[in-house]
Design a protein around this nucleic acid. Structure first.
Lengths: 225, 225
DNA sequence: AAACATCTTTATAAAATCTTTATAAGGCGA
DNA sequence: TCGCCTTATAAAGATTTTATAAAGATGTTT
Protein backbone atom coordinates (compact mmCIF):
# COMPACT_ATOMS: atom_id res chain seq x y z
CA UNK A 1 0.00 0.00 0.00
CA UNK A 2 1.35 3.41 -0.95
CA UNK A 3 1.05 5.98 1.76
CA UNK A 4 0.07 9.47 0.80
CA UNK A 5 2.61 12.16 1.65
CA UNK A 6 1.59 15.35 3.42
CA UNK A 7 3.63 18.51 3.76
CA UNK A 8 3.02 20.68 6.83
CA UNK A 9 4.07 24.31 6.59
CA UNK A 10 3.73 25.96 10.00
CA UNK A 11 6.11 27.96 12.13
CA UNK A 12 4.81 26.73 15.47
CA UNK A 13 6.80 23.67 16.49
CA UNK A 14 4.05 22.42 18.76
CA UNK A 15 1.43 22.38 16.04
CA UNK A 16 3.83 20.70 13.62
CA UNK A 17 4.50 17.99 16.18
CA UNK A 18 0.84 17.50 17.00
CA UNK A 19 -0.15 17.26 13.36
CA UNK A 20 2.74 14.98 12.52
CA UNK A 21 1.90 12.50 15.25
CA UNK A 22 -1.77 12.49 14.32
CA UNK A 23 -1.16 12.10 10.63
CA UNK A 24 1.51 9.45 10.96
CA UNK A 25 -0.69 7.37 13.21
CA UNK A 26 -3.29 7.59 10.45
CA UNK A 27 -0.93 6.13 7.91
CA UNK A 28 0.32 9.21 6.14
CA UNK A 29 3.93 10.06 5.46
CA UNK A 30 4.71 13.53 6.80
CA UNK A 31 7.32 16.15 5.98
CA UNK A 32 7.42 19.48 7.78
CA UNK A 33 8.61 22.99 7.09
CA UNK A 34 8.94 25.77 9.65
CA UNK A 35 9.02 28.65 7.19
CA UNK A 36 7.59 29.72 3.87
CA UNK A 37 10.85 29.36 2.00
CA UNK A 38 11.47 25.92 3.39
CA UNK A 39 7.89 24.97 2.53
CA UNK A 40 8.16 26.06 -1.08
CA UNK A 41 11.41 24.21 -1.49
CA UNK A 42 10.11 21.00 0.09
CA UNK A 43 6.95 21.15 -2.00
CA UNK A 44 9.01 21.47 -5.18
CA UNK A 45 11.28 18.59 -4.24
CA UNK A 46 8.65 16.17 -2.96
CA UNK A 47 5.46 17.09 -4.78
CA UNK A 48 3.42 15.83 -1.84
CA UNK A 49 -0.16 14.60 -2.18
CA UNK A 50 -1.46 17.35 0.05
CA UNK A 51 -0.16 20.50 1.74
CA UNK A 52 -1.31 21.89 5.08
CA UNK A 53 -0.45 25.57 5.06
CA UNK A 54 -0.55 28.05 7.91
CA UNK A 55 -1.32 31.56 6.76
CA UNK A 56 0.63 33.32 9.50
CA UNK A 57 4.23 32.60 8.67
CA UNK A 58 7.09 34.88 9.69
CA UNK A 59 8.97 35.14 6.41
CA UNK A 60 6.41 35.17 3.57
CA UNK A 61 2.69 35.83 3.68
CA UNK A 62 0.61 32.71 3.44
CA UNK A 63 -1.42 34.12 0.57
CA UNK A 64 1.77 34.71 -1.34
CA UNK A 65 2.88 31.12 -0.77
CA UNK A 66 -0.48 29.86 -1.94
CA UNK A 67 -0.17 31.82 -5.16
CA UNK A 68 3.39 30.60 -5.71
CA UNK A 69 2.37 27.00 -5.18
CA UNK A 70 -0.62 27.23 -7.46
CA UNK A 71 1.60 28.25 -10.37
CA UNK A 72 2.55 24.62 -10.69
CA UNK A 73 1.08 22.56 -7.85
CA UNK A 74 -2.32 21.07 -8.74
CA UNK A 75 -3.07 18.87 -5.79
CA UNK A 76 -4.87 19.77 -2.58
CA UNK A 77 -3.84 22.64 -0.32
CA UNK A 78 -5.69 22.99 2.97
CA UNK A 79 -5.25 26.26 4.85
CA UNK A 80 -4.94 26.13 8.64
CA UNK A 81 -5.11 29.53 10.21
CA UNK A 82 -5.88 31.35 13.43
CA UNK A 83 -7.32 34.14 11.31
CA UNK A 84 -11.05 33.80 11.24
CA UNK A 85 -11.91 36.88 9.25
CA UNK A 86 -13.98 36.32 6.19
CA UNK A 87 -11.79 38.22 3.77
CA UNK A 88 -8.85 35.91 4.44
CA UNK A 89 -10.98 32.86 3.86
CA UNK A 90 -12.48 34.20 0.65
CA UNK A 91 -9.10 35.29 -0.62
CA UNK A 92 -7.52 31.93 0.09
CA UNK A 93 -10.31 29.94 -1.54
CA UNK A 94 -10.33 32.18 -4.59
CA UNK A 95 -6.59 31.76 -4.86
CA UNK A 96 -7.03 28.04 -5.22
CA UNK A 97 -7.08 26.70 -1.68
CA UNK A 98 -8.93 23.40 -1.45
CA UNK A 99 -10.26 24.05 2.03
CA UNK A 100 -9.85 26.42 4.98
CA UNK A 101 -9.90 25.45 8.64
CA UNK A 102 -9.68 27.80 11.57
CA UNK A 103 -7.46 26.96 14.51
CA UNK A 104 -8.12 25.47 16.91
CA UNK A 105 -9.56 22.70 14.78
CA UNK A 106 -11.01 19.34 15.70
CA UNK A 107 -8.65 16.56 14.75
CA UNK A 108 -11.36 14.23 13.48
CA UNK A 109 -12.74 16.90 11.21
CA UNK A 110 -9.31 17.77 9.89
CA UNK A 111 -8.64 14.14 9.12
CA UNK A 112 -11.97 13.81 7.33
CA UNK A 113 -11.27 16.92 5.28
CA UNK A 114 -7.84 15.55 4.43
CA UNK A 115 -9.37 12.26 3.31
CA UNK A 116 -11.89 14.12 1.15
CA UNK A 117 -9.16 16.28 -0.38
CA UNK A 118 -6.89 13.35 -1.16
CA UNK A 119 -9.80 11.36 -2.58
CA UNK A 120 -10.34 14.17 -5.06
CA UNK A 121 -6.69 14.11 -6.13
CA UNK A 122 -6.91 10.65 -7.60
CA UNK A 123 -8.03 10.75 -11.14
CA UNK A 124 -10.56 7.97 -11.61
CA UNK A 125 -8.70 7.03 -14.78
CA UNK A 126 -7.95 3.43 -13.97
CA UNK A 127 -7.22 2.96 -17.63
CA UNK A 128 -6.00 -0.50 -18.32
CA UNK A 129 -4.15 -0.41 -21.59
CA UNK A 130 -2.90 -3.53 -23.29
CA UNK A 131 -0.32 -3.47 -26.03
CA UNK A 132 0.32 -6.17 -28.62
CA UNK A 133 3.08 -4.98 -30.90
CA UNK A 134 1.46 -2.34 -33.07
CA UNK A 135 -1.94 -2.94 -31.47
CA UNK A 136 -3.09 -0.99 -28.41
CA UNK A 137 -6.36 -1.53 -26.57
CA UNK A 138 -7.61 0.98 -23.99
CA UNK A 139 -10.46 -0.63 -22.08
CA UNK A 140 -11.35 2.46 -20.05
CA UNK A 141 -11.78 4.63 -23.12
CA UNK A 142 -13.11 1.73 -25.19
CA UNK A 143 -10.55 2.56 -27.81
CA UNK A 144 -8.33 0.52 -30.08
CA UNK A 145 -5.29 1.96 -31.78
CA UNK A 146 -3.06 0.53 -34.45
CA UNK A 147 0.18 2.36 -35.17
CA UNK A 148 -1.16 5.33 -33.17
CA UNK A 149 -4.25 5.51 -35.39
CA UNK A 150 -7.60 5.15 -33.65
CA UNK A 151 -9.58 2.33 -35.21
CA UNK A 152 -13.30 2.43 -35.65
CA UNK A 153 -14.71 -0.88 -34.46
CA UNK A 154 -18.37 -1.74 -34.35
CA UNK A 155 -19.85 -3.04 -31.14
CA UNK A 156 -19.64 -6.66 -32.20
CA UNK A 157 -16.12 -6.31 -33.49
CA UNK A 158 -15.03 -4.68 -30.25
CA UNK A 159 -16.72 -7.31 -28.11
CA UNK A 160 -15.10 -10.01 -30.15
CA UNK A 161 -11.68 -8.42 -29.78
CA UNK A 162 -12.12 -8.07 -26.02
CA UNK A 163 -13.12 -11.72 -25.76
CA UNK A 164 -10.02 -12.72 -27.68
CA UNK A 165 -7.79 -10.57 -25.50
CA UNK A 166 -9.33 -11.88 -22.31
CA UNK A 167 -8.44 -15.37 -23.49
CA UNK A 168 -5.13 -14.54 -25.03
CA UNK A 169 -3.23 -17.62 -26.21
CA UNK A 170 -6.12 -20.00 -25.65
CA UNK A 171 -7.91 -21.76 -28.46
CA UNK A 172 -11.55 -20.71 -28.40
CA UNK A 173 -14.10 -22.95 -30.09
CA UNK A 174 -16.62 -21.50 -32.50
CA UNK A 175 -19.39 -22.47 -30.16
CA UNK A 176 -17.81 -20.79 -27.18
CA UNK A 177 -17.27 -17.52 -29.01
CA UNK A 178 -20.77 -17.51 -30.46
CA UNK A 179 -22.28 -18.21 -27.09
CA UNK A 180 -20.28 -15.40 -25.45
CA UNK A 181 -20.88 -12.71 -28.05
CA UNK A 182 -24.27 -13.49 -29.58
CA UNK A 183 -25.86 -15.64 -26.93
CA UNK A 184 -26.74 -19.19 -26.22
CA UNK A 185 -29.04 -19.74 -29.18
CA UNK A 186 -26.48 -18.74 -31.78
CA UNK A 187 -24.06 -21.57 -31.19
CA UNK A 188 -24.61 -23.08 -34.64
CA UNK A 189 -24.11 -19.87 -36.61
CA UNK A 190 -20.49 -20.46 -37.45
CA UNK A 191 -20.76 -18.35 -40.56
CA UNK A 192 -21.44 -15.19 -38.49
CA UNK A 193 -18.16 -15.66 -36.82
CA UNK A 194 -16.29 -16.04 -40.08
CA UNK A 195 -17.73 -12.79 -41.35
CA UNK A 196 -16.82 -10.88 -38.21
CA UNK A 197 -13.40 -12.41 -37.82
CA UNK A 198 -12.91 -11.32 -41.42
CA UNK A 199 -13.85 -7.68 -40.80
CA UNK A 200 -11.90 -7.58 -37.56
CA UNK A 201 -8.79 -8.93 -39.25
CA UNK A 202 -9.12 -6.31 -41.94
CA UNK A 203 -8.94 -3.65 -39.28
CA UNK A 204 -6.30 -4.95 -36.90
CA UNK A 205 -3.99 -7.09 -39.04
CA UNK A 206 -1.28 -5.78 -41.31
CA UNK A 207 -2.01 -8.47 -43.85
CA UNK A 208 -5.44 -9.97 -43.17
CA UNK A 209 -4.65 -13.02 -45.28
CA UNK A 210 -1.56 -13.73 -43.16
CA UNK A 211 -2.89 -12.89 -39.71
CA UNK A 212 -0.47 -12.41 -36.81
CA UNK A 213 -3.05 -11.87 -34.08
CA UNK A 214 -6.18 -13.87 -34.84
CA UNK A 215 -5.02 -17.36 -35.77
CA UNK A 216 -7.37 -19.89 -37.37
CA UNK A 217 -7.46 -23.30 -35.73
CA UNK A 218 -9.08 -25.24 -38.50
CA UNK A 219 -12.00 -27.38 -37.42
CA UNK A 220 -11.94 -25.95 -33.88
CA UNK A 221 -12.01 -22.19 -33.68
CA UNK A 222 -9.59 -19.27 -33.26
CA UNK A 223 -6.72 -18.23 -31.08
CA UNK A 224 -5.49 -14.71 -30.25
CA UNK A 225 -1.83 -13.91 -29.73
CA UNK B 1 -23.26 34.00 -20.51
CA UNK B 2 -23.68 30.43 -19.30
CA UNK B 3 -24.80 30.27 -15.71
CA UNK B 4 -24.17 27.40 -13.36
CA UNK B 5 -27.23 25.86 -11.72
CA UNK B 6 -27.47 25.27 -7.99
CA UNK B 7 -30.03 23.15 -6.17
CA UNK B 8 -30.93 24.16 -2.60
CA UNK B 9 -32.44 21.47 -0.40
CA UNK B 10 -33.63 23.01 2.86
CA UNK B 11 -36.92 22.92 4.69
CA UNK B 12 -36.70 26.43 6.13
CA UNK B 13 -38.36 28.82 3.70
CA UNK B 14 -36.43 31.78 5.06
CA UNK B 15 -33.06 30.22 4.41
CA UNK B 16 -34.11 29.10 0.94
CA UNK B 17 -35.19 32.63 0.11
CA UNK B 18 -32.02 34.17 1.51
CA UNK B 19 -29.79 31.77 -0.37
CA UNK B 20 -31.75 32.10 -3.57
CA UNK B 21 -31.51 35.89 -3.60
CA UNK B 22 -27.83 35.83 -2.80
CA UNK B 23 -26.99 33.22 -5.38
CA UNK B 24 -29.09 34.71 -8.14
CA UNK B 25 -27.50 38.09 -7.66
CA UNK B 26 -24.17 36.34 -8.05
CA UNK B 27 -25.13 34.97 -11.44
CA UNK B 28 -26.25 31.48 -10.58
CA UNK B 29 -29.46 29.83 -11.61
CA UNK B 30 -31.26 28.43 -8.58
CA UNK B 31 -33.79 25.69 -8.03
CA UNK B 32 -35.11 24.88 -4.57
CA UNK B 33 -36.58 21.91 -2.75
CA UNK B 34 -38.26 21.99 0.64
CA UNK B 35 -37.95 18.28 1.39
CA UNK B 36 -35.62 15.37 0.82
CA UNK B 37 -37.91 13.66 -1.66
CA UNK B 38 -38.37 16.80 -3.68
CA UNK B 39 -34.62 17.37 -3.60
CA UNK B 40 -33.80 13.91 -4.90
CA UNK B 41 -36.35 14.25 -7.65
CA UNK B 42 -35.15 17.69 -8.71
CA UNK B 43 -31.57 16.52 -8.74
CA UNK B 44 -32.50 13.58 -10.96
CA UNK B 45 -34.37 15.85 -13.33
CA UNK B 46 -31.85 18.69 -13.53
CA UNK B 47 -28.39 17.37 -12.74
CA UNK B 48 -27.37 20.74 -11.25
CA UNK B 49 -23.77 21.89 -11.08
CA UNK B 50 -23.84 22.00 -7.29
CA UNK B 51 -26.17 20.99 -4.48
CA UNK B 52 -26.55 22.79 -1.14
CA UNK B 53 -27.98 20.25 1.29
CA UNK B 54 -29.33 20.82 4.76
CA UNK B 55 -28.80 17.82 7.00
CA UNK B 56 -31.86 18.39 9.16
CA UNK B 57 -34.76 17.64 6.87
CA UNK B 58 -38.15 16.48 8.11
CA UNK B 59 -38.76 13.53 5.76
CA UNK B 60 -35.42 11.81 5.10
CA UNK B 61 -32.16 12.08 6.97
CA UNK B 62 -29.63 14.27 5.25
CA UNK B 63 -26.98 11.56 5.44
CA UNK B 64 -29.34 9.22 3.63
CA UNK B 65 -29.94 11.78 0.89
CA UNK B 66 -26.22 12.29 0.50
CA UNK B 67 -25.72 8.56 0.02
CA UNK B 68 -28.58 8.32 -2.47
CA UNK B 69 -27.22 11.21 -4.49
CA UNK B 70 -23.72 9.84 -4.51
CA UNK B 71 -24.94 6.65 -6.18
CA UNK B 72 -24.95 8.58 -9.44
CA UNK B 73 -24.28 12.28 -8.81
CA UNK B 74 -20.61 13.16 -9.10
CA UNK B 75 -20.60 16.91 -8.89
CA UNK B 76 -20.21 19.03 -5.77
CA UNK B 77 -22.44 18.70 -2.72
CA UNK B 78 -21.97 21.24 0.08
CA UNK B 79 -23.61 20.47 3.39
CA UNK B 80 -25.21 23.31 5.32
CA UNK B 81 -26.20 22.32 8.80
CA UNK B 82 -26.95 23.64 12.24
CA UNK B 83 -25.36 20.51 13.63
CA UNK B 84 -21.84 21.32 14.66
CA UNK B 85 -20.88 18.00 16.15
CA UNK B 86 -17.80 16.44 14.73
CA UNK B 87 -19.28 13.05 13.98
CA UNK B 88 -21.83 14.53 11.59
CA UNK B 89 -19.12 16.44 9.79
CA UNK B 90 -16.84 13.43 9.53
CA UNK B 91 -19.69 11.21 8.38
CA UNK B 92 -20.81 13.65 5.72
CA UNK B 93 -17.33 14.20 4.35
CA UNK B 94 -16.63 10.48 4.29
CA UNK B 95 -19.90 9.92 2.47
CA UNK B 96 -18.70 12.12 -0.34
CA UNK B 97 -19.69 15.64 0.69
CA UNK B 98 -17.51 18.24 -0.97
CA UNK B 99 -17.63 20.65 1.95
CA UNK B 100 -19.45 21.27 5.22
CA UNK B 101 -20.56 24.62 6.60
CA UNK B 102 -22.20 25.20 9.94
CA UNK B 103 -25.17 27.54 10.19
CA UNK B 104 -25.16 30.40 10.67
CA UNK B 105 -22.62 30.92 7.92
CA UNK B 106 -21.05 34.01 6.46
CA UNK B 107 -22.40 34.68 3.00
CA UNK B 108 -19.07 35.70 1.54
CA UNK B 109 -17.45 32.54 2.76
CA UNK B 110 -20.26 30.40 1.42
CA UNK B 111 -19.97 32.05 -1.99
CA UNK B 112 -16.22 31.49 -2.00
CA UNK B 113 -16.67 27.84 -1.09
CA UNK B 114 -19.27 27.50 -3.84
CA UNK B 115 -16.88 29.03 -6.36
CA UNK B 116 -14.16 26.64 -5.25
CA UNK B 117 -16.50 23.66 -5.44
CA UNK B 118 -17.75 24.48 -8.92
CA UNK B 119 -14.22 25.13 -10.11
CA UNK B 120 -13.41 21.63 -8.89
CA UNK B 121 -16.14 20.02 -10.99
CA UNK B 122 -13.71 20.42 -13.84
CA UNK B 123 -10.53 18.42 -13.95
CA UNK B 124 -8.05 19.48 -11.29
CA UNK B 125 -5.36 19.96 -13.89
CA UNK B 126 -7.63 22.02 -16.06
CA UNK B 127 -6.18 25.26 -17.26
CA UNK B 128 -8.82 27.90 -17.60
CA UNK B 129 -8.59 27.84 -21.39
CA UNK B 130 -8.38 24.81 -23.64
CA UNK B 131 -7.64 24.93 -27.32
CA UNK B 132 -8.52 22.30 -29.91
CA UNK B 133 -7.34 23.53 -33.27
CA UNK B 134 -9.80 26.26 -34.16
CA UNK B 135 -11.85 25.66 -31.00
CA UNK B 136 -11.18 27.53 -27.75
CA UNK B 137 -13.00 26.95 -24.47
CA UNK B 138 -12.70 29.31 -21.51
CA UNK B 139 -13.98 27.45 -18.46
CA UNK B 140 -13.61 30.39 -16.11
CA UNK B 141 -15.74 32.65 -18.26
CA UNK B 142 -17.92 29.81 -19.55
CA UNK B 143 -17.27 30.93 -23.09
CA UNK B 144 -16.48 29.14 -26.33
CA UNK B 145 -14.72 30.63 -29.32
CA UNK B 146 -14.20 29.29 -32.82
CA UNK B 147 -11.75 31.08 -35.09
CA UNK B 148 -11.74 34.00 -32.63
CA UNK B 149 -15.53 34.31 -32.92
CA UNK B 150 -17.50 33.89 -29.72
CA UNK B 151 -20.08 31.16 -30.15
CA UNK B 152 -23.54 31.43 -28.74
CA UNK B 153 -24.19 28.14 -26.99
CA UNK B 154 -27.27 27.37 -24.95
CA UNK B 155 -26.89 26.02 -21.42
CA UNK B 156 -27.35 22.46 -22.50
CA UNK B 157 -25.01 22.75 -25.46
CA UNK B 158 -22.34 24.25 -23.25
CA UNK B 159 -22.72 21.59 -20.57
CA UNK B 160 -22.54 18.90 -23.21
CA UNK B 161 -19.39 20.36 -24.69
CA UNK B 162 -17.72 20.61 -21.28
CA UNK B 163 -18.59 17.00 -20.54
CA UNK B 164 -17.07 15.92 -23.84
CA UNK B 165 -13.91 17.91 -23.19
CA UNK B 166 -13.56 16.56 -19.66
CA UNK B 167 -13.57 13.08 -21.16
CA UNK B 168 -11.57 13.78 -24.25
CA UNK B 169 -10.76 10.66 -26.22
CA UNK B 170 -13.03 8.39 -24.23
CA UNK B 171 -16.13 6.81 -25.67
CA UNK B 172 -19.08 8.05 -23.64
CA UNK B 173 -22.26 5.98 -23.72
CA UNK B 174 -25.58 7.64 -24.42
CA UNK B 175 -26.75 6.73 -20.96
CA UNK B 176 -23.75 8.24 -19.24
CA UNK B 177 -24.10 11.51 -21.10
CA UNK B 178 -27.82 11.75 -20.42
CA UNK B 179 -27.29 11.05 -16.74
CA UNK B 180 -24.61 13.70 -16.43
CA UNK B 181 -26.34 16.44 -18.40
CA UNK B 182 -30.05 15.90 -17.88
CA UNK B 183 -30.10 13.83 -14.73
CA UNK B 184 -30.59 10.31 -13.60
CA UNK B 185 -34.15 9.96 -14.86
CA UNK B 186 -33.33 10.84 -18.46
CA UNK B 187 -31.16 7.86 -19.26
CA UNK B 188 -33.50 6.47 -21.90
CA UNK B 189 -33.98 9.68 -23.86
CA UNK B 190 -31.42 8.95 -26.54
CA UNK B 191 -33.18 11.13 -29.07
CA UNK B 192 -32.56 14.26 -26.96
CA UNK B 193 -28.93 13.62 -27.23
CA UNK B 194 -29.07 13.26 -31.00
CA UNK B 195 -30.80 16.57 -31.36
CA UNK B 196 -28.31 18.37 -29.13
CA UNK B 197 -25.27 16.73 -30.63
CA UNK B 198 -26.68 17.89 -33.93
CA UNK B 199 -27.00 21.54 -32.88
CA UNK B 200 -23.65 21.48 -31.13
CA UNK B 201 -21.96 20.09 -34.22
CA UNK B 202 -23.52 22.81 -36.32
CA UNK B 203 -21.85 25.36 -34.08
CA UNK B 204 -18.43 23.88 -33.44
CA UNK B 205 -17.69 21.76 -36.50
CA UNK B 206 -16.48 23.09 -39.82
CA UNK B 207 -18.55 20.53 -41.67
CA UNK B 208 -21.20 19.11 -39.32
CA UNK B 209 -21.78 16.14 -41.61
CA UNK B 210 -18.08 15.24 -41.42
CA UNK B 211 -17.37 15.98 -37.77
CA UNK B 212 -13.76 16.22 -36.59
CA UNK B 213 -14.51 16.73 -32.90
CA UNK B 214 -17.64 14.86 -31.91
CA UNK B 215 -17.32 11.38 -33.32
CA UNK B 216 -20.29 9.01 -33.46
CA UNK B 217 -19.75 5.54 -32.07
CA UNK B 218 -22.73 3.79 -33.54
CA UNK B 219 -24.67 1.70 -31.07
CA UNK B 220 -22.72 3.06 -28.11
CA UNK B 221 -22.38 6.80 -27.87
CA UNK B 222 -19.98 9.57 -28.82
CA UNK B 223 -16.33 10.44 -28.47
CA UNK B 224 -14.67 13.86 -28.43
CA UNK B 225 -11.26 14.42 -29.94
C1' DA C 1 -49.64 40.04 -25.22
C1' DA C 2 -46.29 39.38 -28.71
C1' DA C 3 -41.69 38.09 -29.85
C1' DC C 4 -38.02 35.31 -28.90
C1' DA C 5 -35.09 31.62 -27.32
C1' DT C 6 -34.84 27.20 -25.83
C1' DC C 7 -36.29 22.64 -24.92
C1' DT C 8 -39.07 18.52 -26.08
C1' DT C 9 -41.30 15.56 -29.28
C1' DT C 10 -42.40 13.54 -33.68
C1' DA C 11 -41.50 12.20 -38.35
C1' DT C 12 -38.63 10.69 -41.86
C1' DA C 13 -34.48 10.12 -44.61
C1' DA C 14 -29.81 8.53 -44.50
C1' DA C 15 -26.15 5.82 -42.75
C1' DA C 16 -24.22 2.10 -40.33
C1' DT C 17 -24.41 -2.37 -38.84
C1' DC C 18 -25.94 -6.98 -38.79
C1' DT C 19 -27.61 -11.13 -41.12
C1' DT C 20 -27.88 -14.05 -44.92
C1' DT C 21 -26.53 -15.99 -49.26
C1' DA C 22 -23.32 -17.09 -52.79
C1' DT C 23 -19.04 -18.31 -54.28
C1' DA C 24 -14.09 -18.70 -54.23
C1' DA C 25 -10.07 -20.47 -51.98
C1' DG C 26 -7.36 -23.45 -49.02
C1' DG C 27 -5.99 -27.85 -46.85
C1' DC C 28 -5.78 -32.75 -46.58
C1' DG C 29 -6.14 -37.62 -47.50
C1' DA C 30 -6.84 -41.13 -51.03
C1' DT D 1 -5.02 -34.72 -59.01
C1' DC D 2 -9.64 -35.13 -57.33
C1' DG D 3 -13.26 -34.81 -53.94
C1' DC D 4 -14.59 -33.37 -49.54
C1' DC D 5 -14.67 -30.39 -45.84
C1' DT D 6 -13.51 -26.05 -43.80
C1' DT D 7 -12.57 -21.26 -44.24
C1' DA D 8 -12.51 -16.50 -46.40
C1' DT D 9 -14.58 -12.81 -48.79
C1' DA D 10 -17.84 -10.17 -51.26
C1' DA D 11 -22.09 -8.48 -51.61
C1' DA D 12 -27.14 -8.24 -51.30
C1' DG D 13 -30.97 -7.81 -48.12
C1' DA D 14 -32.82 -6.72 -43.53
C1' DT D 15 -32.63 -4.30 -39.47
C1' DT D 16 -31.08 -0.98 -36.31
C1' DT D 17 -29.19 3.32 -35.33
C1' DT D 18 -28.37 8.09 -36.39
C1' DA D 19 -29.10 12.81 -38.38
C1' DT D 20 -32.01 16.51 -39.40
C1' DA D 21 -35.89 19.24 -39.96
C1' DA D 22 -39.70 20.95 -38.11
C1' DA D 23 -43.76 21.31 -35.18
C1' DG D 24 -45.36 21.83 -30.52
C1' DA D 25 -44.47 23.22 -25.69
C1' DT D 26 -42.50 25.99 -22.32
C1' DG D 27 -40.59 29.81 -20.41
C1' DT D 28 -38.54 34.50 -20.64
C1' DT D 29 -38.09 39.23 -22.20
C1' DT D 30 -39.78 43.40 -23.92
Amino acid sequence: MNKAEILIIDDEAQIRKLLQINLESNDYRVITAASGHEGLSLAANHSPDLILLDLGLPDISGHKILQELRQWYQKSIIILSVMDNESDIVKALDNGATDYLTKPFRTGELLARIRAAIRRNLDPDQTTIKVYGDLEVDFGARMVKKNQETLKLTQTEYNLLVLFIKNEGKVLTHQFILKEIWGYSYQMETQYLRVFVGTLRKKIEDSPNLPKHIITESGIGYRFQ
